[in-house]
């Protein structure tokens, strides 16, 4: 059994570290906002980070999938194509996820 006060101490420390990391740019905002470099990053980073999160999630899924990365690639291609075409997030996400779930579960049950 896990000791409760120890566990609460761990959680409090983790909460403090996580909040500190998330808050750092805002605490240093006055310094950062005067920097043109930061504004440059503000324009550059959103697309870069979104791409990284996408690639990272895909790599994570593909590594757990014994039948290779094809299901991930097909599903993400579907999402990107649908989103570029129809621009309806919910439709794109549901279609891509449904395709992925179908591909994965067909592959396992057969």
């Amino acid at each position: 059994m896990i000791d409760t006060s120890y566990a609460l101490g761990v959680l409090a420390a983790m909460a403090a570290v996580t909040f500190g990391l998330r808050a750092l740019p805002f605490l240093a905002a006055r310094f950062l906002q005067s920097h043109p470099l930061v504004q440059r990053l503000g324009r550059f980073l959103p697309l870069a980070i979104m791409t990284l999160l996408l690639v990272h999630t895909l790599v994570g899924s593909a590594r757990e999938n014994p039948s290779g990365p094809w299901a991930e690639l097909a599903a993400v291609a579907t999402v990107v194509a649908l989103q570029r075409w129809r621009r309806q997030p919910l439709l794109s996400i549901l279609a891509g996820t449904a395709l992925y779930v179908a591909l994965r579960n067909i592959g396992i049950s057969s």
Binding site: M50, L54, L58, A71, E72, V76, V79, Q83, L103, I108
Partner: peptide, 17 residues
Amino acid sequence: LVGLDFALAALFAVLAV
């Protein structure tokens, strides 16, 4: 069902687009 959490990857894909 295996793979429902792919919704997160799909969300990232939509937002990247």
